[in-house]
């Protein structure tokens, strides 16, 4: 198998608050022959600055793109906000020569120069497009056919489609019907549980300003998923995962799984190596059901 190499962009949340997601991503990548390289120099993607000053966010994003360019590697992200911000920045800088010139003048002050030689991909998109589910399916040793899984994409995995489609992020996801996580669930053999509001935002964007509204939005989705009888909600973003985990009554918890954790279980990896015990909500019920 050809080893594919990516620079692993962790962002802010994952390496501090979502270690289970990070562990599982690293184990699954290893199992599928994807080499994730840890580069020094990666910092915040820029997303938290965007609403305040889009240019400041772009400059910070460009700084990160430069780190990957220097290493000659494409970037893989685990966070939807990182994926969206870095993708949009790379697209704008590749398309707009005047903007690139302005950014490079500022980057020169810290001895960096953006060239436009890297690519940005969410880890889910790498599995979905570059590895492909057929390759994963051939390695499934623990079919999850007794699990009921609901999926939540999170906004910036696929919206705005204008950005992802222009950037050439394949496959092109439909704004009203993204399908990568559905393909993953199908590959693991689990039963996909549909529910109302599946493509809606988790509400995480309001955690800083109105945590009550953020949790009300997440809580609505969690209750709907529970009503439909899912064993777990599968997510592709640390902010979504944290918001769903922190928006539940303690006596009626819904397991929140990061997508590499589900895939890792299906690939037969040791559940203890997939960081399940590091998730905010224990996955004990799910493990019991699987007998692992």
């Amino acid at each position: 198998m050809t080893v594919q190499r990516y620079a692993l962009f962790l962002g802010c949340n994952v390496p501090v608050r979502n270690l289970g997601y990070e562990l599982a991503a690293r184990r699954v990548a290893e199992a599928l022959g994807i080499e994730l390289v840890d580069l020094p120099g990666f910092r915040c993607c820029g997303y938290p600055l965007k609403a305040l000053d889009s240019y400041a966010a772009l400059l910070v994003a460009a700084h990160n793109l430069c780190q990957a360019e220097a290493a000659g590697l494409p970037i893989v992200t685990l966070c939807n906000a990182c994926s969206g911000t870095l993708t949009e920045a790379d697209l704008e800088l590749k398309e707009d020569a005047a903007l690139r010139e302005r950014v490079n003048q500022d980057l020169a002050r810290v001895d960096l120069h953006y060239q436009g030689t890297t690519q940005v991909r969410h880890f889910l998109r790498v599995l979905d497009n570059e590895i492909g589910w057929e390759a994963s399916r051939g390695r499934i040793s623990r079919p999850l056919d007794n699990l009921h899984i609901a999926v939540h994409y999170g906004c910036h995995y696929f919206r705005p489609t204008r950005v992802f489609h222009s950037y050439g992020a394949e496959p092109r996801e439909d704004a009203e019907a993204p399908a990568a996580l559905d393909r993953l669930v199908a590959a693991t053999g689990a039963i996909n549980v549909s529910y109302d509001g599946r493509n809606d935002c988790c509400g995480g964007g309001l955690l800083g300003l109105r945590p009550d509204l953020a949790q009300e939005q997440a809580g609505r989705k969690v209750r709907e998923v529970q009503r439909r009888g899912a064993d777990a909600l599968l997510v592709a973003c640390p902010t979504c995962g944290l918001n769903f985990s922190n928006s539940q009554p303690a006596d009626q918890e819904l397991t929140i799984l990061y997508f590499p954790q589900l895939l890792g279980l299906a690939l037969g990896l040791d559940p203890d190596e997939l960081g399940l015990e590091l998730n905010q909500i224990p996955a004990d019920g799910l493990r019991e059901k699987l007998g692992v």
Binding site: R159, E176, D200, L213
Partner: peptide
């Protein structure tokens, strides 16, 4: 104004 989640649902529709 700051309540906008930047979820881009409006933009897609």
């Amino acid at each position: 104004l700051w309540y906008c989640l930047a979820c881009f649902t409006c933009q897609e529709r």
